[in-house]
Design a protein around this nucleic acid. Structure first.
Lengths: 357, 357
DNA sequence: GAGGTTGGAGAGAGCGCTCTCGGCAGCAGC
DNA sequence: GCTGCTGCCGAGAGCGCTCTCTCCAACCTC
C-alpha cells in the first residue's frame, strides 16, 4: 500500500549520474557541450530512473509550452459531423507530434464561448493557435488576432486581404498581425468542375451555391462565374451545404430553367440532394443532366446513385500544412519572421471522375 | 515598437491591491478566509491588470493540470473519418470546459505510436485520460493502465471483465486499476433491430456482422443471436464495417440463402452497401427484403434509397458521460474512490424507423 | 614556462505560484 | 485583566526546471 511514488527529478538523475543538475539538463536538451562519457552516464541514469522532464517546471522558465491550440468554431452539428475536421485534425496531429508539440482542442458552442477562447489564448497557455473560421461575420478571428497569439487560419478568413483588423485597441503588438491561412483552391476547383461540364458539351450549366456567409461558398461561386461569365442569373441558386438545401435549390432551378443540362453543386451533400430531385423529376444523370459536386466526401460521393463526379481537396495535407506554417513562425526569431511574408497558401484540387458527369 | 509586455504576476496584483501574494492567491482560488473589503480590492486589481494565473507555475506546485488527454487510436482513415469521433469529442469538450479542464488530443498512427502515448501519459502531463480502444488485440489499454493514469474507456475494452491486466509489473499502484468504460447498448440495440424485423413478420433474418475484432461488432452479433437463437448459421456473414464489406457480405448471403427476407447490418455503412446489392439483384426494399442498420449515421442513413431504418445511439452523450465519470474520479479523495465501484455504464439505444424496414 | 584562450562543468538565482506556518488582532471566559 | 481561542493575513519556503555566470583544467602561443 505504498504512497504514489513521486516521479524522479533532474536532481535525482544528477545524483545518480554523479554530475550536476545543469549537466543533466544539458544532456536532456540535446547534449551540446557535454563530453561523451558524461552524456553516456547521464543517459543511463535517465533510463534507469525512468526520468521524464516536468513540463510545467520547464515552461515556467522557458515560457514555451510546446503546445498549440486548435480552435474549431462550429455550432452546427451538421458540419461538425462531417469528415472534414477529423481529417484535418489528423494532418495537424501528425505534424505536431512530429515536432513534439501537443494539441489542445478548443471547440466552441455559440457566441459566448468565443470570449472564453479569447481569454484562454490570451492567457498564454499555448504557443500558437490553429483556427477554423467558417463564417464571414465571425468575431472569433478578430478576437484571436487581438490575443496576440501566432495564428494560422484554416480557410481564408472572412475579411478581405488588406482589410485586416489591425487596430484592435489593446492588442499586444510586437506580433506581426498578418493573417496567415491555408485554404484549398476553391475558385480554381470550381473552374475545373464547370470546365469539365462545358467540355462535355453542356451549355446550360446551373450552380447550387453554398451558404454565402462562408468564403468557400463565395469562392466556388466566383469560380463558376469565371467560366460562365455570361450565365443566366437564374441558373444560380443558393443552398446551405445540406442535402435538404440541395434539394430545395434543385427544385428552384428546374422550375426556373427546365432546359438546364448540368449542375455544379458547391458540395457533395447538396449534390446528393440534387440527384434525388433530378431522379424524382425523371431526369437521367448524366444523360439529361450532368452533376458535379465538391469535396469528394467519401461516404457520400461514392454512395450516391450514380456515384458523384466531384472535386477532391487534400484535407489532411491542409491540416499538416497549417501546423507546419505555425511551427515555422514559432521557431523563427523576430528578424527572420519579418521576412516571412507568407499570408496565404492555397492547395490544389483535382477532379475525380465518377459516373455523374 | 515596445517589447512584448510580460503578463502581470500575482506579485503585481498584490502590490496594486496593497496586500500579500498569499491573499491574492486565496482570492483567485475562491476567496475563502479573506474578508470582504480585501476580496473586493483584490478583485478590482485583478480586473485592472488583466491578470490571468500562470498555469505552469500553478501546476508545478499543485501537481494538477486541469487537463485530460483524449486518446484516439485509429489508423484507419475510414473509421476516423466518420462523424462518430467528432460527436464524441463534442460531448467530451462540453463537459470538460464546463469544469475548466483542457482537452489534449492524442491521435495515434500505428503501433509505434502507442509507446509514445504511453510515455506521454506516464509523464504526468495530464490528470486523466479518455481512451477509445477499438480493437480486441490492442495493446493500448494495457499500456495505459500501466501508466497509472485514471482512465475511462469509450467502448468496452477488449479484455473480458475480471481479466484485467492488473499486474503490469512496475505500474505505480495506489490507483485502483479497475477499467471504467462507457458504451452504448450494442447488444440490446441489436436485439431491438432484429425484434423489429421479426415483428414485421420476417422469418429468414440475416446478419451482416462488423469486424469481429471489435467489441461492438461482437456485441451486436450476440444481440442478433439472442433473438435468432436457432438461426441458420449461413445467415450470418462477416463484413468489416465498410460499404464494400457490406456489398460483399450481402452477395454471400444472397448466394447462400436466396430466400432471406430481412437483413440486419451491424452498421449503416454496410447497410448502404447491402442496399445496393439488393437493388442490383432486383430485390425490392423493404417489400422483398427489409433492412435495418446501426449507428444512425446521418449523412448515410438519410441519404440511402430507401432511407435506412436503424438503431440510434447518443454519441454525444456518451462522450459527455465519459468526461463526467473521469472528472468524478479525479475529484474524489481516495476513501470515497474506494467506494466507487462503477466499472461500466451502458447507454440505451433507440430504433429509428425510416423506409427500409 | 608565464600568460592567454578555450571548452566543459558546477553553483545559484529565479520563473510564478501554493501552502504551511506563525503572528496578531479581536473576543470570550474566568 | 489575563489566558486561550478563533480567524485573517503575511512571510517564506519550495515545486522542478533553465540559464547565466563563474570556475577550472587543459591546451596554445611565443
Amino acid at each position: 500500500m505504498s504512497e504514489a511514488v513521486s516521479r524522479p527529478t533532474l536532481e535525482a538523475v544528477a545524483a545518480r549520474a554523479g554530475v550536476s543538475r545543469a549537466t543533466v539538463s544539458r544532456v536532456v536538451n540535446g547534449g551540446d557541450g557535454v563530453r561523451e562519457p558524461l552524456v553516456e552516464r547521464v543517459r543511463r541514469a535517465v533510463e534507469e530512473l525512468g526520468y521524464v522532464p516536468n513540463q510545467a517546471a520547464r515552461s515556467l522558465v522557458t515560457k514555451r509550452h510546446d503546445a498549440v491550440a486548435v480552435v474549431i468554431a462550429e455550432p452546427e452539428t451538421r458540419v461538425f459531423a462531417d469528415p472534414f475536421f477529423a481529417l484535418q485534425l489528423r494532418g495537424i496531429s501528425k505534424e505536431l507530434t512530429a515536432h513534439d508539440n501537443q494539441l489542445v482542442l478548443l471547440l466552441t458552442e455559440g457566441r459566448d464561448d468565443h470570449a472564453r477562447v479569447g481569454r484562454y489564448l490570451a492567457g498564454g497557455h499555448v504557443d500558437g493557435a490553429l483556427v477554423f473560421s467558417l463564417h464571414l461575420d465571425d468575431a472569433l478571428p478578430g478576437l484571436i488576432q487581438g490575443a496576440g497569439v501566432p495564428t494560422v487560419f484554416g480557410g481564408r478568413p472572412g475579411w478581405s486581404d488588406g482589410n485586416l483588423p489591425q487596430t484592435l485597441g489593446s492588442a499586444p503588438s510586437g506580433q506581426d498581425s498578418t493573417a496567415v491561412y491555408v485554404d484549398s483552391d476553391n475558385r480554381g476547383g470550381a473552374r475545373d468542375a464547370v470546365r469539365h461540364l462545358v467540355g462535355l458539351g453542356r451549355r446550360r450549366v446551373a450552380h447550387i451555391a453554398g451558404a454565402l456567409d462562408q468564403t468557400s461558398a463565395v469562392d466556388r461561386l466566383d469560380g463558376f462565374r469565371d467560366v460562365m461569365a455570361d450565365a443566366d442569373p437564374r441558373l444560380i441558386a443558393e443552398g446551405d451545404f445540406t442535402p435538404a438545401g440541395g434539394e430545395r435549390a434543385m427544385r428552384e432551378l428546374l422550375d426556373r430553367c427546365p432546359d438546364l443540362d448540368a449542375v455544379f453543386a458547391a458540395n457533395d451533400l447538396m449534390a446528393s440532394g440534387a440527384l434525388r430531385v433530378l431522379r424524382e423529376h425523371g431526369r437521367r444523370v448524366p444523360d439529361d443532366v450532368a452533376v458535379v459536386g465538391f469535396d469528394d466526401m467519401l461516404p457520400v460521393a461514392e454512395q450516391t446513385d450514380p456515384p458523384l463526379t466531384t472535386i477532391r481537396q487534400d484535407i489532411e495535407e491542409m491540416g499538416r500544412l497549417m501546423a507546419r506554417l505555425l511551427l515555422r513562425r514559432l521557431r523563427r526569431n523576430p528578424t527572420e519572421a519579418d521576412q516571412d511574408t507568407t499570408t496565404g497558401v492555397v492547395l490544389p484540387t483535382t477532379l475525380v471522375r465518377r459516373a455523374s458527369a
